[in-house]
Design a binder for these strands. Structure first.
Length: 834
RNA sequence: GCCGAUGUGGUGAAACUGGUAGACACGCGACACUCAAAAUGUCGUGGGCUUCGGCCCAUGUCGGUUCGAGUCCGACCAUCGGCACCA
């Protein structure tokens, strides 16, 4: 009988005692760093989604181990952060107690699933020996000028009562709790990630990552190429600088638009409608994202009457407006409006009766305009008259020096002209904004900065780290804009590290994403309290060979981790700038076609299933569900089906091979030989396919191949010799072990193995033995399958043709028609065209 | 609106560079074992015709390339995800 509990317990103990999963980090010969995204320990326990990712990752890690690599597969807990804290608040317990409990629970569960974790090197972000170095990272950033404080409109979550980074606002809502996020003007600490925009983008060209995720980052970084153009303000020394991706349309710029906040930088004394302007500015500053959405993006704006700008290319005087459809944070915060060729400007110009001047002729570009040919002439007329907006490429008209040029050339020429006459220059802008890392919360590493009345903001000295997170009973966020630590007088009051005078500590903590941006470095140097990183191990093990995790982190964790790695390289701590050479993004797991959620009550708790079916069955089932890239649909019936397979597999090892031979049917020698020949072929082709599938990360098909072999062996076991049965079982034990490690060990032992199966070599196959000697040759007539005949695999075109034409059925089909052509695909088919 | 992914039996899904569509499972049906049930095993299982030899139709829809298309090209539809006044 298959008693999964007994087996799992047995091997857990053996693994723990043998240290088989703790490689020598300094001496390993073939290092393979197998990383999976460490979980944040929610109090509900390990989610089946976590397990889904972990078992796939582990399966590959174990496969690599069997291939002879020294695999390092660490695990830890991303325990600092808003999510854990919110949960503690909800259940009315202190976060430190909840944290202690969840750590225990999580590690217990993580043991159960049977991964080859190195339990001697865990990392918990909320422990002093870790966050000390997170603070160290902040200091390094600060020293390099990459951590700085600025007052800016930031995202404020009304429920979490803290600011958030742009990446943590998902469609206007808080990434953690789903509450609407509003804009607030506050002074906060930022990391200068925008300085790395270009590099972050460039390296995407070569890193081996899931395409989807790379594209997500590319779009988020959002590079635009274009030009900066200066528009002089009439009767003033000021210039208004705009950014545009279409400098070729500059002759069609009929007005300028400034973001409302930008207008404050201008001299408004000459503006005749000052009151109106000021009112618009203050109103738009108060507007939240939500209000903007409610207004359905209806464009509004106010003209700065009395102010005029000059189009530097044709010297025409044009009006200046402020409108909140121009964004302060992007480009220069000002735009040249070309209503004829920009939808937004067009809408605005229509509403306020501004001039629309067509400067791009679309007549030769019907396909670009995506318009059916019958309507095209009419539409061209409308565009030329400025009654319709055209945003694509075309030929420049009404545009002085670039008249007649196609968009691309026009852009090139105009930029040359701008640069020559010092009116502007080529420029690239990014959508990416700096990373706001302050959090007005309790459960995080205090930001190691001190504000002195005399010296301003001064960093804590490195030797004084960590800045300990003080224990406090009431750790709830209060929404004051300051973190809870502000209420701990002993903590706040300190001395300036520079002048020794009275000073105050920063009371915000840092974003939990800072914690997770470097944890994979720390795994290589746990238990060292002298330095955060170990240079020589870093050289040996980094970059991570395979990183397995959720695609949803495309613009969160994965972007931050890349950024931090680049900074550490620039600081000289490491000599590579991409942390993960290969990233595999897995899909989401759903239940019966629906997303799992507490409200639906359809959450799959892995514990229950492990209890009932055993970890191996659950592992196998999770990997059999479908393509790991696309996620899977959990169904209880399917889980039960996999359990049946496991029991069948178990039975294969229950019979004594010699006892089996007694029941062996009396079949003739020749037949017996044939059967074992088939058996050998099955073994070799299974090894071949499973190896190939694992290399392709096609876990589900690899399992299917193993099932085929198991089914065949189950059927034929009593017809096979003891020798063969034994050989097959040994191979099968190794093949199954990455997927079902407990069973792998048990089977290996049952077939005479003394040591762990994971000290074995992955079985090899011989190509010629894996191949069939005979095939079903498909005979097609005019591309339609008509007949299959058994032939040798090496049959030539002539032989195949001859054989095909001998078949009665084929003769009938061809009858007296003439054969026009015969196509032969070796080892597959012959197609007779008549 | 823009970008991306996906669309194949009753269900989850396979199909390497264009070459037997539906591997492997789930479910269902029949049979065997059983007094019976469960468990297990064996066989069958895309749809429609059939003179039981086979034939026709089928990979979201329409068209194209090809001896041959789930796979390549073009247009469209649906679902899901990301971004969203980014100049």
């Amino acid at each position: 009988m298959y008693d999964h509990k007994k087996i799992e317990e047995k091997w857990q103990k053996k693994w723990a005692g043998s240290k088989i999963y703790s490689p020598d980090l300094d001496k390993a010969k073939k290092p393979f760093y197998n990383l999976m995204m460490f979980p944040y320990p929610s109090a509900e326990g390990l989610h089946v989604g976590n397990m889904y990712a972990f078992v796939h990752s582990d399966c590959l890690g174990r496969f690599k181990r069997l291939e002879g690599y020294d695999v390092f597969e660490p695990i830890g807990l991303d325990g600092f952060g808003i999510h854990s804290e919110n949960y503690a608040i909800k259940i009315g317990e202190h976060i430190r107690d909840v944290s202690r409990r969840t750590e225990k629970h999580f590690y217990q569960q993580l043991h159960m699933i049977g991964n080859q974790y190195d339990w001697t090197r865990t990392v918990e972000t909320y422990k002093e020996d870790y966050y000390k170095w997170t603070q160290w990272l902040f200091l390094k950033m600060h020293k390099k000028g990459l951590a700085y404080r600025k007052k800016a409109p930031v995202n404020w979550c009304l429920s979490c009562k803290t600011v958030l980074s742009d990446e943590q606002v998902i469609s206007g809502k808080c990434e953690r709790c789903g509450t609407q996020v509003v804009k607030k003007q506050m002074a906060q600490w930022f990391f200068g990630i925008t300085k790395y925009a270009k590099r972050l983008l460039k390296n995407l060209n070569w890193i081996d990552w899931t395409e989807e995720v790379k594209l997500g980052q590319k779009n988020w970084i959002g590079q635009s190429q274009g030009a900066l153009i200066d528009f002089p303000v009439l009767e003033s020394k000021k210039k208004i600088r705009v950014f545009t991706t279409r400098p070729d349309t500059v002759f069609g710029a009929t007005y300028l638009v400034l973001a409302p906040e930008m207008a404050e930088e201008l001299d408004l004394s000459r503006v005749s409608n000052q009151a109106q302007v000021k009112k618009y500015i203050s109103r738009s500053k108060k507007k939240t994202e939500q209000q903007r959405l409610e207004e359905k993006r209806e464009k509004t704006g106010v003209e700065l009457r009395g102010l005029q700008a000059v189009n530097p290319l044709n010297n025409e005087k044009i009006p200046v407006w402020i409108a909140d459809y121009a964004l302060k944070e992007y480009g220069t915060g000002a735009i040249m409006a070309v209503p004829a060729h920009d939808g937004r400007d067009f809408e605005f110009a229509k509403k306020y009766g501004l001039e629309i001047k067509c400067v791009v002729d679309p007549s030769e570009y019907r396909l670009v305009a995506k318009v059916p040919s019958e309507d095209f002439q009419e539409i061209v007329e409308e565009i030329l008259k400025g009654k319709k907006c055209y945003e694509y490429k075309g030929r420049a008209i009404n545009s002085g020096l670039i008249n007649g040029l196609e968009t691309k050339q026009a852009i090139r020429k105009i930029i040359k002209y701008l640069e020559k006459n010092k009116l502007g220059r080529r420029a690239t802008t990014y959508k990416l904004r700096d990373w706001c890392v302050s959090r007005q919360r309790y459960w995080g590493p205090p930001i190691p900065m001190i504000e002195c009345e005399e010296c301003g903001w001064v960093p804590v000295k490195e030797k004084d780290l960590p800045v300990r997170l003080p224990d406090m009973d009431s750790f709830h966020p209060d929404g004051s804009g300051k973190g809870p630590l502000n209420k701990v007088a002993d903590f706040v009051k300190t001395k300036c590290p520079k002048c020794g005078g009275a000073a105050r500590r920063e009371t915000d903590v840092s974003d939990p994403f800072v914690d997770s941006s470097w944890y994979f470095f720390r795994y290589l140097n746990t238990n060292d309290d002298k330095q955060p990183l170990n240079k020589s191990r870093m050289k040996k093990w980094m970059p991570v060979d395979l990183y397995f995790g959720g695609k949803e982190h495309a613009v969160l964790h994965l972007l931050y981790a890349r950024f931090v790695t680049m900074v550490l390289k620039d600081l000289g701590y490491i000599d590579f700038e991409e942390p993960f050479s290969k990233f595999f993004g897995h899909g989401l797991i759903v239940k019966d076609g629906a997303k799992m959620s507490k409200s639906k009550g359809n959450i799959v708790n892995p514990d229950e299933y492990i209890e009932r079916f055993g970890a191996d069955s659950v592992r196998l089932y999770l990997m059999f569900l479908g393509d790991a890239r696309q996620g899977g649909d959990w169904k209880d019936a399917g889980m039960a089906g996999m359990f049946r397979f496991v029991k069948r597999l178990w039975r294969l090892y229950e019979n004594d091979v010699n006892a089996l031979s007694l029941t062996r049917k009396k079949i003739k020698g020749a037949e017996k030989g044939d059967l074992e020949k088939t058996g050998i072929r099955k073994l070799h082709s299974t090894i071949k396919k499973v190896t190939r599938d694992l290399n392709r990360m096609s876990f589900n098909t690899a399992i299917a191949r193993i099932m085929e072999l198991v089914n065949w062996l189950g059927r034929e076991k009593s017809n096979l010799s003891p020798d063969f049965n034994n050989r097959a079982r040994k191979i099968l034990a190794v093949l199954i072990s990455p997927f079902a490690p407990y069973l792998g060990e048990e089977f290996w032992q049952k077939t005479g193995g003394r040591e762990s199966v994971f000290k074995e070599k992955w079985p090899e196959f011989k190509e010629e033995l894996a191949r069939k000697k005979e095939i079903e040759l498909v005979i097609q007539v005019n591309g339609k399958l008509r007949l299959k005949i058994l032939t040798g695999v090496n049959i030539t075109a002539q032989e195949a043709r001859k054989k095909a034409l001998e078949q009665e059925r084929i003769k009938e089909l061809i009858a007296d028609k003439k054969i026009k052509k015969v196509i032969f695909v070796k080892g597959r088919l012959i197609n007779i065209v008549i």
